[in-house]
Amino acid sequence: MTLRLEPPEDGDLAAWWRLALGARAAGLRPDQVIWQAPETADLFAAPVTVVPSPLLPSPVAPDEALIPLSEAATHLIETVVLHSSETRFALAYRLLDRLAARPALIGNPADPDIRRAQGLAKAVHRDMHKMKAFVRFRSVATPQGERFIAWFEPDHHILEATAPFFRRRFAAMHWAILTPRKSAFWDGKTLSFGLGARREDAPTEDAMETAWTAYYAAIFNPARLKPDAMRAEMPKKYWRNLPEAKLIPGLIETAAARTGEMIASGPTTPNRRIVPYQPQTKTRPS
Protein backbone atom coordinates (compact mmCIF):
# COMPACT_ATOMS: atom_id res chain seq x y z
CA MET A 1 0.00 0.00 0.00
CA THR A 2 1.31 3.44 -0.89
CA LEU A 3 -0.26 6.61 0.44
CA ARG A 4 0.08 10.06 -0.93
CA LEU A 5 0.23 12.67 1.79
CA GLU A 6 -0.28 16.30 1.07
CA PRO A 7 2.77 18.13 2.42
CA PRO A 8 2.27 20.76 5.10
CA GLU A 9 2.51 24.43 4.30
CA ASP A 10 6.11 25.54 3.74
CA GLY A 11 7.90 26.58 6.90
CA ASP A 12 5.09 25.32 9.17
CA LEU A 13 6.97 22.92 11.41
CA ALA A 14 4.04 22.24 13.72
CA ALA A 15 1.97 21.07 10.75
CA TRP A 16 4.83 18.87 9.58
CA TRP A 17 5.09 17.15 12.96
CA ARG A 18 1.32 16.59 13.10
CA LEU A 19 1.39 14.92 9.70
CA ALA A 20 4.55 12.89 10.22
CA LEU A 21 3.67 11.67 13.67
CA GLY A 22 0.15 10.88 12.50
CA ALA A 23 1.53 8.83 9.65
CA ARG A 24 3.84 7.00 12.02
CA ALA A 25 1.00 6.30 14.43
CA ALA A 26 -0.87 4.80 11.47
CA GLY A 27 2.06 2.46 11.00
CA LEU A 28 3.21 3.84 7.66
CA ARG A 29 6.76 2.94 6.69
CA PRO A 30 8.80 5.55 4.77
CA ASP A 31 8.51 3.51 1.55
CA GLN A 32 4.71 3.56 1.83
CA VAL A 33 4.41 7.34 1.79
CA ILE A 34 4.65 9.76 -1.09
CA TRP A 35 4.78 13.41 -0.10
CA GLN A 36 3.20 15.31 -2.93
CA ALA A 37 0.88 18.24 -3.34
CA PRO A 38 -2.14 17.45 -5.57
CA GLU A 39 -1.20 19.97 -8.27
CA THR A 40 2.22 18.40 -8.80
CA ALA A 41 1.03 14.78 -8.73
CA ASP A 42 2.32 12.69 -11.62
CA LEU A 43 -0.73 11.38 -13.48
CA PHE A 44 1.14 8.43 -14.89
CA ALA A 45 2.65 7.22 -11.64
CA ALA A 46 1.35 4.10 -9.97
CA PRO A 47 -2.08 4.73 -8.43
CA VAL A 48 -1.91 5.90 -4.88
CA THR A 49 -4.45 6.56 -2.21
CA VAL A 50 -4.74 10.14 -1.14
CA VAL A 51 -5.26 10.67 2.54
CA PRO A 52 -6.48 14.12 3.49
CA SER A 53 -4.52 14.91 6.60
CA PRO A 54 -7.56 15.42 8.89
CA LEU A 55 -8.39 11.74 8.40
CA LEU A 56 -5.12 10.58 9.90
CA PRO A 57 -5.22 9.42 13.52
CA SER A 58 -5.78 12.42 15.73
CA PRO A 59 -2.93 14.92 15.51
CA VAL A 60 -0.23 14.53 18.11
CA ALA A 61 2.13 17.19 19.35
CA PRO A 62 5.79 16.14 18.96
CA ASP A 63 6.43 16.10 22.69
CA GLU A 64 3.46 13.83 23.32
CA ALA A 65 4.43 11.37 20.67
CA LEU A 66 6.82 9.47 22.90
CA ILE A 67 9.28 8.96 20.11
CA PRO A 68 12.79 8.84 21.58
CA LEU A 69 14.28 11.63 19.48
CA SER A 70 17.25 13.56 20.77
CA GLU A 71 17.28 17.33 20.53
CA ALA A 72 19.93 17.07 17.80
CA ALA A 73 17.77 14.63 15.80
CA THR A 74 14.68 16.83 16.13
CA HIS A 75 16.68 19.85 15.04
CA LEU A 76 18.17 18.06 12.04
CA ILE A 77 14.76 16.83 10.87
CA GLU A 78 13.20 20.27 11.26
CA THR A 79 16.02 21.92 9.36
CA VAL A 80 15.62 19.45 6.49
CA VAL A 81 11.90 20.33 6.33
CA LEU A 82 12.82 24.02 5.84
CA HIS A 83 14.88 23.23 2.74
CA SER A 84 13.31 23.86 -0.66
CA SER A 85 14.38 20.48 -2.06
CA GLU A 86 11.50 18.44 -3.47
CA THR A 87 12.65 15.37 -1.56
CA ARG A 88 12.78 17.10 1.84
CA PHE A 89 9.63 15.50 3.29
CA ALA A 90 10.57 12.01 2.16
CA LEU A 91 14.05 12.41 3.64
CA ALA A 92 12.70 13.93 6.87
CA TYR A 93 10.18 11.11 7.29
CA ARG A 94 12.85 8.48 6.61
CA LEU A 95 15.17 10.16 9.14
CA LEU A 96 12.37 10.17 11.70
CA ASP A 97 11.89 6.45 11.15
CA ARG A 98 15.57 5.56 11.24
CA LEU A 99 16.57 7.85 14.11
CA ALA A 100 13.69 6.66 16.27
CA ALA A 101 14.85 3.07 15.77
CA ARG A 102 18.55 3.85 16.14
CA PRO A 103 19.28 7.18 17.89
CA ALA A 104 23.08 6.76 17.61
CA LEU A 105 22.82 7.04 13.83
CA ILE A 106 22.82 10.83 14.14
CA GLY A 107 26.52 10.64 15.01
CA ASN A 108 27.52 8.86 11.81
CA PRO A 109 28.42 11.38 9.14
CA ALA A 110 29.31 8.53 6.76
CA ASP A 111 25.65 7.37 6.54
CA PRO A 112 24.13 8.56 3.22
CA ASP A 113 20.86 9.84 4.76
CA ILE A 114 22.68 11.66 7.55
CA ARG A 115 25.16 13.11 5.11
CA ARG A 116 22.42 14.28 2.76
CA ALA A 117 20.47 15.74 5.68
CA GLN A 118 23.53 17.55 6.97
CA GLY A 119 24.12 18.92 3.49
CA LEU A 120 20.58 20.30 3.33
CA ALA A 121 20.83 21.60 6.90
CA LYS A 122 24.02 23.43 6.03
CA ALA A 123 22.31 25.16 3.12
CA VAL A 124 19.37 26.15 5.32
CA HIS A 125 21.64 27.50 8.07
CA ARG A 126 23.62 29.47 5.53
CA ASP A 127 20.42 30.92 4.12
CA MET A 128 19.28 31.92 7.62
CA HIS A 129 22.66 33.46 8.33
CA LYS A 130 22.62 35.41 5.06
CA MET A 131 19.12 36.65 5.83
CA LYS A 132 20.31 38.01 9.19
CA ALA A 133 23.18 39.68 7.34
CA PHE A 134 21.59 41.00 4.17
CA VAL A 135 18.12 42.17 5.16
CA ARG A 136 18.14 45.96 4.63
CA PHE A 137 15.43 47.93 6.35
CA ARG A 138 14.09 51.12 4.83
CA SER A 139 12.49 53.64 7.09
CA VAL A 140 9.04 55.04 6.34
CA ALA A 141 7.37 57.85 8.29
CA THR A 142 3.70 57.14 9.01
CA PRO A 143 1.17 59.00 11.15
CA GLN A 144 1.60 56.21 13.71
CA GLY A 145 5.38 56.63 13.80
CA GLU A 146 8.48 55.29 12.04
CA ARG A 147 8.18 51.90 10.31
CA PHE A 148 11.06 49.78 9.00
CA ILE A 149 10.36 47.64 5.97
CA ALA A 150 12.62 45.20 4.12
CA TRP A 151 12.30 43.03 1.03
CA PHE A 152 14.22 39.76 1.05
CA GLU A 153 14.32 36.69 -1.21
CA PRO A 154 15.40 33.59 0.71
CA ASP A 155 16.29 30.32 -1.03
CA HIS A 156 14.57 28.15 1.58
CA HIS A 157 11.54 28.31 3.84
CA ILE A 158 13.31 30.16 6.62
CA LEU A 159 11.25 33.27 7.31
CA GLU A 160 9.40 31.88 10.34
CA ALA A 161 12.58 30.40 11.77
CA THR A 162 14.64 33.59 11.29
CA ALA A 163 12.08 36.25 12.25
CA PRO A 164 12.63 35.78 16.03
CA PHE A 165 16.21 36.95 15.55
CA PHE A 166 14.91 40.30 14.26
CA ARG A 167 12.41 40.47 17.12
CA ARG A 168 15.20 40.06 19.69
CA ARG A 169 17.40 42.60 17.93
CA PHE A 170 14.84 45.26 16.97
CA ALA A 171 12.25 44.76 19.69
CA ALA A 172 11.49 48.47 20.07
CA MET A 173 11.06 49.10 16.34
CA HIS A 174 7.99 48.34 14.27
CA TRP A 175 9.19 46.36 11.29
CA ALA A 176 8.12 44.13 8.43
CA ILE A 177 10.13 41.71 6.32
CA LEU A 178 8.41 40.98 3.01
CA THR A 179 9.31 37.90 1.00
CA PRO A 180 7.69 36.35 -2.08
CA ARG A 181 6.10 33.50 -0.12
CA LYS A 182 5.18 35.09 3.17
CA SER A 183 5.77 38.22 5.21
CA ALA A 184 6.68 38.79 8.85
CA PHE A 185 5.42 41.69 10.95
CA TRP A 186 6.47 42.96 14.36
CA ASP A 187 4.49 45.75 16.03
CA GLY A 188 6.51 45.94 19.20
CA LYS A 189 4.35 43.28 20.86
CA THR A 190 3.43 40.49 18.50
CA LEU A 191 5.22 38.66 15.73
CA SER A 192 2.78 37.70 13.01
CA PHE A 193 2.98 36.27 9.52
CA GLY A 194 0.98 37.22 6.47
CA LEU A 195 0.81 36.76 2.74
CA GLY A 196 3.76 36.97 0.40
CA ALA A 197 4.54 40.27 -1.29
CA ARG A 198 6.17 41.73 -4.36
CA ARG A 199 9.37 43.69 -4.54
CA GLU A 200 7.39 46.82 -5.46
CA ASP A 201 5.47 46.60 -2.19
CA ALA A 202 8.57 47.61 -0.23
CA PRO A 203 9.93 51.17 -0.15
CA THR A 204 12.54 51.87 -2.81
CA GLU A 205 14.80 54.26 -0.92
CA ASP A 206 16.00 55.44 2.44
CA ALA A 207 17.76 58.67 3.31
CA MET A 208 20.59 56.83 5.13
CA GLU A 209 21.60 54.87 2.03
CA THR A 210 23.74 57.75 0.75
CA ALA A 211 25.82 57.54 3.93
CA TRP A 212 25.89 53.74 3.90
CA THR A 213 27.09 53.50 0.30
CA ALA A 214 29.65 56.27 0.94
CA TYR A 215 30.93 54.22 3.87
CA TYR A 216 31.06 51.05 1.74
CA ALA A 217 33.14 52.81 -0.93
CA ALA A 218 35.50 54.40 1.62
CA ILE A 219 36.20 51.25 3.65
CA PHE A 220 37.24 49.33 0.51
CA ASN A 221 41.00 49.12 -0.01
CA PRO A 222 41.71 49.22 -3.78
CA ALA A 223 45.24 47.91 -3.19
CA ARG A 224 43.81 44.56 -2.06
CA LEU A 225 41.28 43.79 -4.78
CA LYS A 226 39.88 40.24 -4.30
CA PRO A 227 36.46 40.14 -5.97
CA ASP A 228 36.28 36.32 -5.91
CA ALA A 229 36.60 36.31 -2.12
CA MET A 230 33.80 38.86 -1.96
CA ARG A 231 31.52 36.88 -4.29
CA ALA A 232 32.13 33.65 -2.36
CA GLU A 233 30.55 35.23 0.71
CA MET A 234 28.15 37.63 -0.98
CA PRO A 235 26.97 35.86 -4.16
CA LYS A 236 25.55 37.97 -6.96
CA LYS A 237 21.99 36.74 -6.36
CA TYR A 238 21.86 38.96 -3.25
CA TRP A 239 23.13 42.09 -4.96
CA ARG A 240 19.83 43.37 -6.31
CA ASN A 241 18.52 43.88 -2.80
CA LEU A 242 21.70 45.40 -1.34
CA PRO A 243 21.91 49.20 -1.83
CA GLU A 244 25.73 49.14 -1.63
CA ALA A 245 26.08 46.51 -4.36
CA LYS A 246 25.45 48.97 -7.20
CA LEU A 247 28.91 50.44 -6.46
CA ILE A 248 30.75 47.14 -6.88
CA PRO A 249 31.44 47.20 -10.65
CA GLY A 250 32.82 50.75 -10.48
CA LEU A 251 35.00 50.04 -7.45
CA ILE A 252 36.49 46.97 -9.12
CA GLU A 253 37.05 48.76 -12.40
CA THR A 254 38.95 51.70 -10.92
CA ALA A 255 40.91 49.77 -8.26
CA ALA A 256 44.04 49.10 -10.32
CA ALA A 257 44.29 52.69 -11.50
CA ARG A 258 43.86 54.06 -7.96
CA THR A 259 46.57 51.75 -6.60
CA GLY A 260 48.91 52.56 -9.49
CA GLU A 261 48.46 56.24 -8.81
CA MET A 262 49.35 55.82 -5.12
CA ILE A 263 52.57 54.04 -6.03
CA ALA A 264 53.45 56.32 -8.95
CA SER A 265 52.95 59.51 -6.97
CA GLY A 266 55.69 58.36 -4.58
CA PRO A 267 56.45 59.71 -1.13
CA THR A 268 55.33 63.22 -0.31
CA THR A 269 56.86 65.93 1.78
CA PRO A 270 54.78 67.35 4.58
CA ASN A 271 53.31 70.69 3.64
CA ARG A 272 53.07 72.03 7.15
CA ARG A 273 55.39 72.51 10.04
CA ILE A 274 55.55 69.50 12.37
CA VAL A 275 55.93 70.08 16.07
CA PRO A 276 57.44 66.96 17.59
CA TYR A 277 55.16 65.20 20.09
CA GLN A 278 56.19 65.61 23.73
CA PRO A 279 54.63 63.13 26.10
CA GLN A 280 53.44 64.64 29.36
CA THR A 281 55.25 63.17 32.29
CA LYS A 282 52.79 61.78 34.72
CA THR A 283 53.42 60.61 38.23
CA ARG A 284 50.78 58.24 39.42
CA PRO A 285 50.84 55.01 41.36
CA SER A 286 50.67 52.04 39.02
Partner: peptide
Protein backbone atom coordinates in the same frame (compact mmCIF):
# COMPACT_ATOMS: atom_id res chain seq x y z
CA UNK B 1 18.95 41.31 23.28
CA UNK B 2 16.60 44.25 23.46
CA UNK B 3 13.36 42.43 24.32
CA UNK B 4 13.24 44.29 27.63
CA UNK B 5 14.24 47.64 26.09
CA UNK B 6 16.98 49.40 24.19
CA UNK B 7 18.24 48.53 20.74
CA UNK B 8 20.20 45.60 19.43
CA UNK B 9 21.46 42.15 20.26
CA UNK B 10 24.57 40.02 20.19
CA UNK B 11 24.45 36.27 19.67
CA UNK B 12 27.21 33.71 19.72
CA UNK B 13 28.55 34.29 16.20
CA UNK B 14 29.25 37.63 14.62
CA UNK B 15 27.57 38.62 11.38
CA UNK B 16 29.22 40.04 8.27
CA UNK B 17 26.63 42.40 6.86
CA UNK B 18 28.46 43.03 3.64
CA UNK B 19 31.70 42.35 1.82
CA UNK B 20 33.86 44.90 0.02
CA UNK B 21 35.55 44.00 -3.29
CA UNK B 22 38.76 43.45 -1.26
CA UNK B 23 37.04 40.32 0.10
CA UNK B 24 36.90 41.73 3.61
CA UNK B 25 33.89 41.40 5.82
CA UNK B 26 31.99 44.53 6.81
CA UNK B 27 30.54 43.83 10.20
CA UNK B 28 31.07 47.05 12.11
CA UNK B 29 30.96 50.74 11.37
Amino acid sequence: NSVSGGLGSTESAGICHSYAPDGRCISLL
